[in-house]
């Protein structure tokens, strides 16, 4: 009995903490979304409100009237993230397939190398990367944001870890006996088996590409090429000073697609994080 009572108290405590954390996670976004619908005057009187107001369109007009074009950022981010994700997942799976399925002399050396370079962040290579892009005249090219994702060492590592138990080599052998070409086998047999891993990695690749600020900030100078995070960073500028409603509106526009997608895919995303760590 005593134990039961203690368990109950602990449980109540756990729920209280979890609810507090939930509020902390959601409150900033709630304030943001509500303020996006309130006028600047309302915000100045009370910066926190829980009930939306009616100035949404007004804020939107102020925002877009100041050369803030969320559609351009959205389009560019979508292009970059989609193609980067396609490149990253496809070529990482292909590379992992090469490591898992075939025996080649440099295989182990290659894989050790992949693991060694897994953690090199973009920041430390940026000076050279920028100079290279500059010399090639590609500073404003979205290709420079897409193509590097063909080499995603950590994703190769993940794909290999997943592929070893999930893709029996017998299947590959069987396909060969049926006369299938290697590339065909990979596309038609291996890829579908890897679907769950590809799905989770695709989500992460997409999100990290969508959220990347550093590389686009260094490379892109043309407003038509700006991605969403750079658009967002413009909201800090003087021209939005005192236009609180419009700033919140701009922030909301950049976040809303992410939140909606997240709510639909949350299960898979959270499971994917867990999957990655178990394997890694």
């Amino acid at each position: 009995m005593l134990d039961n009572k203690e368990t109950k108290i602990i449980k109540v405590f756990i729920y209280i903490v979890c609810v507090i954390l939930t509020v902390l996670s959601i409150l900033p976004f709630w304030i943001m979304i509500v303020n996006a619908t309130r006028s600047t005057t309302q915000i100045q009187q009370h910066a926190v409100a829980f009930i939306p107001s009616t100035y949404m369109m007004n804020n939107f007009k102020i925002l877009t009237g100041k050369s803030f074009n969320p559609m351009v950022g959205f389009k560019n981010s979508l292009i970059v993230s989609t193609f980067a994700t396609l490149c990253a997942t496809y070529f990482s799976t292909l590379t992992a397939y090469a490591v898992v399925v075939y025996d080649w002399k440099l295989k182990n050396a290659f894989f050790s190398f992949v693991m060694a370079v897994m953690m090199i962040p973009a920041q430390v290579t940026m000076i050279g990367f920028y100079q290279m892009a500059y010399k090639l005249g590609l500073t404003n090219s979205l290709l420079m944001l897409i193509l590097p994702s063909v080499a995603a060492p950590s994703m190769v590592f993940f794909m290999r870890q997943y592929m070893i138990p999930s893709l029996p080599l017998e299947i590959v052998q069987a396909a060969r006996i049926d006369g299938a070409k290697e590339f065909y086998t990979f596309n038609i047999i291996a890829l579908p088996i890897m679907k769950p891993a590809i799905a989770t990695q695709a989500i992460f690749s997409f999100v990290s590409s969508w959220n990347n600020l550093f590389t686009p900030m260094v490379l892109l100078t043309k407003q038509e090429k700006y991605t969403m995070p750079i658009m967002v960073s413009l909201l800090k500028g003087d021209i939005y000073k005192t236009e609180y409603g419009a700033v919140y509106m701009g922030l909301t526009l950049t976040v809303l697609p992410l939140i909606i997608v997240y709510l639909f895919l949350a299960k898979y995303i959270v499971a994917g994080v867990a999957l990655g760590s178990v394997k890694g």
Binding site: K66, S67, Y134, G137, T139, N140, T221, K222, Q223, E224, S233, L234, K236, G237, D238, I239, Y240
Partner: peptide, 22 residues
Amino acid sequence: TSTIIATTDGAYQPALDQALAA
């Protein structure tokens, strides 16, 4: 077409410089 970047955080100069140099 116009490109407008506020001078806050010194953001305008690097962007303009790179655009000129590129």
